[in-house]
Design a protein around this nucleic acid. Structure first.
Lengths: 228, 228
DNA sequence: CATTTTCATCTTGCATACTAGATTAATATC
DNA sequence: GATATTAATCTAGTATGCAAGATGAAAATG
């Protein structure tokens, strides 16, 4: 599936523009519905329209932009269907991962999980939200590796990224960091104890926390959503 | 995620080129490792390089082409990692779909499943492999609709397409049509009887049939595979 | 003043030309 | 004859110019 940043031995200006715009979209610096002009971007980056066009095209393929001939290119709005899809896919994948992880977790795996938890605790204490975001990804990645399905993390990351953009609209993550870490703790301990059912229950509860957030945000920011 | 064929009100030449090349790649008219030249395609379609470039870019984003600056663009080879990923994702999604379908199946759903089975039987009798291919997709789509997660079919279709390309390398589907239909029958009946576990068991067995096929094919066509 | 029409301006799509690096075949060298 | 070197030919990346449709504001009309 689509690569986050085209893996090329030689980076082109398209790669640069793509990466920057992508991060701006995902961090909501560019908001859903915002118009993007090829010429504006071209002058901004000091290049011609062509590389910008290519970058736009790539972003459109990742469903982050909507390009319509002869009309302005806009940052893609959220759609409840896409959100439901993400939610469904992630939930299904994570269940499988957790069951396998609980089956396969050994002492090395347990140690890695404990270390991940400790790092998260440290991020909580220093209230470093950005670091926690990274550690959140790392935690789920570790679970995938323990389950020996590291490719599953590709999918999780993709789906997570979509929802993360949405969640940025809501309250600061700070408030829920301790809650999320507590979830991670339960998940990790269940996996370490080979308690597959327990891990899945904890994991699903963890994912479930997103639902309320999403519902609230979508009610408050209907202009960022596609009309159904 | 990426659309099969960009949904634009006005179709551009990029759309045409994209659709055609995509179908040629998925049907193995263009084989993994084949080189594609922008200029060749441009002359073939009677356009300039630019629309071809855009189409190539779109195909690369769907992981069907590999574009490297200053080097030839080639049809993407299979990778065992990608195949495992597809397999894993599809399996996880289908389990969820089957459980929900078994829960939610009503008389209308049962009738639709029975009708789908009848059509497949007809295709078997007339040995219409192409038609069966379509009905295979339709069957899984019906299951998603009964489960009220029609978006799940997007994912299944994407993953299925990848593996289908691979399976075309193997024996004709004809040999296994009756086997597959028998699987479908078991799945449908379990769903109709609200037997979630039975449906999942039958579904997983159904998916499992791919494994042997893939293993055999990958052994025989190592040149179509990425070196690990 | 409200409505329609027109026109300037904006948008992306496409064609062409050129560049720099990668490839490959021919040549030179040993 | 095998190997190293060179040069012709390929590749995609980028710049620029023009065309056609969409947009929105200004002007004309009732």
């Amino acid at each position: 599936m689509a690569h986050a940043a085209q893996i090329t031995d030689t980076r082109t200006s398209v790669d640069d523009i793509f990466d920057l715009l992508r991060s701006e979209i995902l961090s909501l610096k560019l908001r859903p519905g915002d118009k993007l002009s090829e010429v504006d971007m071209a002058t901004r980056f000091g290049v011609s329209r062509q590389p910008v066009r290519d970058a736009f095209s790539r972003l459109a393929n990742q469903d982050l932009l909507v390009i319509r001939p002869k009309r302005a290119t806009v940052v893609k709005r959220f759609s409840t269907r896409e959100i439901n899809k993400s939610r469904f896919v992630r939930s299904a994948i994570e269940e499988r991962v957790l069951r396998r992880a609980a089956d396969l977790c050994d002492l090395v795996g347990a140690a890695r999980l404990d270390m991940a938890l400790a790092e998260q605790q440290k991020a909580l204490e220093s209230k470093d939200v950005a670091a926690f975001g990274q550690l959140d990804y790392a935690f789920h990645k570790t679970l995938c590796e323990i389950a020996q399905v590291d490719f599953a993390f590709d999918v999780i990351m993709e789906e997570k990224a979509k929802v993360d953009r949405l969640c940025l609209l809501g309250l600061a993550k700070e408030d829920r960091m301790s809650e999320l870490i507590s979830d991670h703790y339960k998940i990790a301990k269940a996996v370490e104890n080979h308690d597959a059912d327990g891990a899945v229950i904890a994991g699903m509860k963890h994912l479930g926390r997103l639902d309320d957030t999403i519902k609230r945000i979508s009610a408050q920011n209907s202009d960022y959503f596609d009309p159904e």
